[in-house]
């Protein structure tokens, strides 16, 4: 058994914080991809044409039902063989965003369905163009309803980022691992990583709950 060493913690902290910054970046960009792509899926799935809804629902179900790590490996190891190479962090962002977009699509769907039919009827009665109905009436109201659920997925994504270490993204876990590989001392790096996750995700979820209370008046 080794004993906890604060001086060791001090030494490894800069590297871990560097990793944390990568983790946070992956989460932010991954979320933006997931928010945007999820909306694309949700709208495509409401298309009147089966030629749109069929392929999209197959793709979405496929992505939703395969593990994120497998997808990351596919993007990182298989795509380059086809001439598509991205930096590890970019690959990670695409992977996280793509995977989580299948969940956010579902969130948007529920949010859009939750807008009362009377809103559509009022828009029709005023002859609002279809586009305007979506952008000015339906989506703003749906958005209000989806913020809490989207926020929960951001936190879930944040906690999934250690998977990116598997494709050589220098996130927190990757840093902790490489430190430990040279010092053979795992206690402090791994513990600090765990604590840093809590330090970020717990206040975030509190913030989210406060936001939820404000939005759902």
């Amino acid at each position: 058994m080794n004993n906890w060493s604060w001086s060791y913690v001090g030494e490894i902290m800069p590297d871990l914080l560097k990793g944390l910054w990568i983790t946070v970046q992956a989460t932010i960009y991954g979320s933006l991809v997931a928010f945007a792509l999820g909306l694309v899926w949700a709208l495509a799935l409401r298309s009147p044409s089966r030629w749109v809804t069929w392929p999209v629902s197959i793709v979405v179900e496929f992505i939703r039902n395969t593990p994120l790590l497998v997808q990351l490996f596919f993007l990182f190891f298989v795509l380059p063989a086809w001439g598509l190479t991205f930096a590890p962090l970019t690959t990670g962002v695409i992977g996280l965003g793509l995977h989580y977009s299948t969940y956010t699509a579902e969130v948007y769907r529920a949010g859009i369905d939750g807008v009362p039919p009377g809103q559509w009827e009022a828009a029709t009665a005023l002859s609002l163009p279809r586009r305007r109905t979506w952008t000015a009436v339906i989506l703003p109201q749906a958005f209000r309803r989806v913020v809490p659920a989207l926020g929960n997925y951001v936190i879930a994504m944040f906690k999934d980022t250690p998977l990116l270490a598997g494709i050589t993204v220098a996130d927190m876990l990757f840093q902790a691992n490489s430190i430990s590989a040279t010092t053979f001392d795992y206690l402090e790096p791994i513990t600090v990583v765990g604590i840093l996750f809590v330090v970020i995700s717990y206040p975030t979820s509190l913030l989210l709950r406060a936001l939820e209370r404000r939005l759902v008046r």
Binding site: G118, Q119, E121
Partner: peptide
């Protein structure tokens, strides 16, 4: 409409 159906976001 009976239920007004105003746009609550505006």
């Amino acid at each position: 409409f009976q239920q007004f159906n105003l746009f609550p976001n505006m």
